[in-house]
Design a protein around this nucleic acid. Structure first.
Lengths: 357, 357
DNA sequence: GACCCGGACTGAAACATTTCAATCCGCTGA
DNA sequence: TCAGCGGATTGAAATGTTTCAGTCCGGGTC
């Protein structure tokens, strides 16, 4: 037997049983209609007579026909797919955003293709390029300040919305959260607790989000009548993982002071671990506030106060925005959508810790 | 002006500047070659003369030509894409698996499309169906014991490998970790610490992984000369999040005993939080072991002992396995690959806790 | 009985690419 | 000078779907 297609049964193969996947043509022949009619049954069932439709549908079922997506896409120019490129797929913030985006995509019968840039501009570019070929629109949380350039380069004419970052010159839609406000809320809360000095542990200030949150903290200090530079001590770490938070606090030692604001929850959880190991009682000796309000924050050893971002909504809205841009085509006008964050106060920064009511 | 395609500049449009995306035909015309040659430049550059190639490449660059993936797929029958359907995209285990899979896919110039079934059989089916249309192969961590049925239904003839689950009747390739061994290692360790009773907090026993880990714990008890049913107390919770672990331990109170094994790290972290709040010193009063060794485990308030699974390798290998199946076609033979887990001992279950050397 | 209407159905064209048999052409060797 | 060679190039066919200008036909109207 040649290495080609093997015949499963040695009996004489029925000529109408092709081994390859059935096409609309196969369905049409078997149902005794033209392939245009099959297409109509598939796409505009109301336009075909009930009897014909039933017959075609039966054959579709019988043959196990499934539309070839490539041919469909080629003809219609629509992929019914959206891309989402995130900075770090391991970050709960982005997985929650992805959930929201997926839900929105599903409502419009689209699938969501997830890409991970791992905070690398090169990977981001690669992702944008491959996605541009296979999706109708892209949502991207850009890596750095050259975002616009990357975006132009990578996505070409594909509709694109920026996630968690405003479009500097309004060249794209964007969906973001007011990070300055978030930083302000966190710091304000800590100052109101009576602290006059505050340590901010932040990821790279080259990230706009971090810079904004720190700026918010400074603003809160000023608003509280303090000298921003003196009252707020900023410590920058390379990454935003628990490990970095832990190492940073360990290094600071007692120097960390009585009030700490971390620019994300992972840093804060690391800080919490380190503080506990050093014997400090978080929520009593030290007030600690994180950012993002990831699911685990509420269930940490000491439930963590955090600035809640509407992550799910962010993804949902971003997705709806690309979909709108796709639908509107030429007459689309870009818009910048900004969500407001919200401070969630838990044990880690209670004014008077009350473990049990 | 009709609502059609607007002309950006009111000047006379140059006839060779189409507003639509350029095609191979456009490139061919502009470079003065046939479209077959352009295709050759794209796919077999070594076969075309250096001068011609250079000219074509210049035009590609100039026009910003990018291949239409749909047409490409339609003609070649290859998508250069792989699908990965996971139980829970928020679970660090799966994000790490995804990382490995993506790396493997990239090596073969494929993209990885991520799907999330959220532990719902219905969503899994939906994911499998949409993926089957748009990828060359699928990796799936199936929801429940009807896996085979779902898989047959959803994926049709698409090559498919099972992740983190063996194929019951060898009908697919699979890449998994020996969960019985993992449970055994964890329990054995706790028994060796001197405990004679053990509480196992597990997710739904309908999940094979959980059932296997519990079975391993029983086996360890038996091996230690104990009565498996008496020495091992199994508590089943609905989900495998930190919240569930916390709630479960809170409910058990002192009843939890001196040795706890959780079938994943999130449960263990929740348990850790609850134990700490109750004033118990984990690593001293209570020994605690998790499962998965997620990144955060080492940086928890008390660094968590855990059964490490080679998550990245799991994803990497699963991906290579589908790729092999795709490449081998008819002559492919299914194989079951089983990785060995490894126990990582940290503070949460030290024989003699030594905070500082 | 002729005519027309409109719903149902048809089938060729189009989508952008790849493939491959055929052609072209400049050289080499006799 | 010419047959023959082989690398470079060509262009038609093919992929599976959707679209749309038509055709068909049963029945109602005059």
């Amino acid at each position: 037997m040649p290495p080609g297609r093997p015949t499963p049964t040695p009996s004489i193969a029925t000529p109408d049983t092709p081994a390859r996947r059935p096409t609309v043509r196969d369905v049409a022949e078997r149902a005794g209609v033209s392939l245009g009619t099959v297409s109509n049954v598939l796409n505009r069932p109301e336009q075909v007579a009930a009897r014909t439709r039933a017959r075609v549908e039966a054959v579709v079922e019988e043959l196990g026909f499934v539309r070839n997506a490539s041919a469909n896409q080629l003809r219609t120019g629509r992929h019914r797919a959206l891309g989402l490129v995130v900075l770090d797929i391991g970050n709960p913030f982005f997985t929650e955003v992805a959930r929201g985006a997926e839900a929105a995509a599903r409502e419009d019968d689209c699938v969501l293709v997830l890409g991970n840039s791992d905070s690398s501009a090169e990977q981001e570019l690669r992702n944008l390029r491959t996605l541009a070929e296979r999706v109708d629109g892209i949502i991207v949380s850009p890596v750095d300040e050259h975002a616009e350039e990357l975006v132009r380069l990578g996505a070409g004419a594909t509709p694109l919305v920026l996630l968690d970052r405003r479009s500097p010159r309004g060249r794209h839609c964007s969906v973001s959260v007011d990070d300055v406000l978030g930083g302000l809320l966190a710091a304000e809360h800590l100052f109101q607790l009576g602290h006059s000095r505050l340590t901010v542990i932040t990821g790279p200030l080259s990230l706009q989000q971090c810079a904004d949150r720190v700026e918010g903290a400074h603003a809160a200090a000023t608003a509280a009548g303090l000298d921003a530079k003196q009252a707020v001590r900023v410590v920058e770490v390379d990454n935003m993982t628990a490990r970095d938070g832990r190492a940073c606090v360990a290094e600071l030692g007692d120097d960390v002071g009585g009030a700490v604001f971390c620019t994300n929850d992972l840093l804060a959880l690391g800080a919490l671990a380190s503080l506990q190991q050093a014997g400090r009682r978080v929520g009593e000796d030290v007030a600690l506030v994180g950012y993002d309000d990831i699911a685990f924050a509420a269930d940490a050893a000491v439930p963590l106060s955090s600035v809640r971002q509407p992550m799910y909504e962010l993804g949902y809205r971003a997705c709806k925005t690309v979909l709108a841009e796709i639908a509107e085509g030429e007459r689309h006008r870009h818009q910048q959508i900004v969500f407001q964050p919200e401070l969630v106060i838990r044990e880690s920064s209670r004014p008077n810790p009350v473990p049990e009511q």
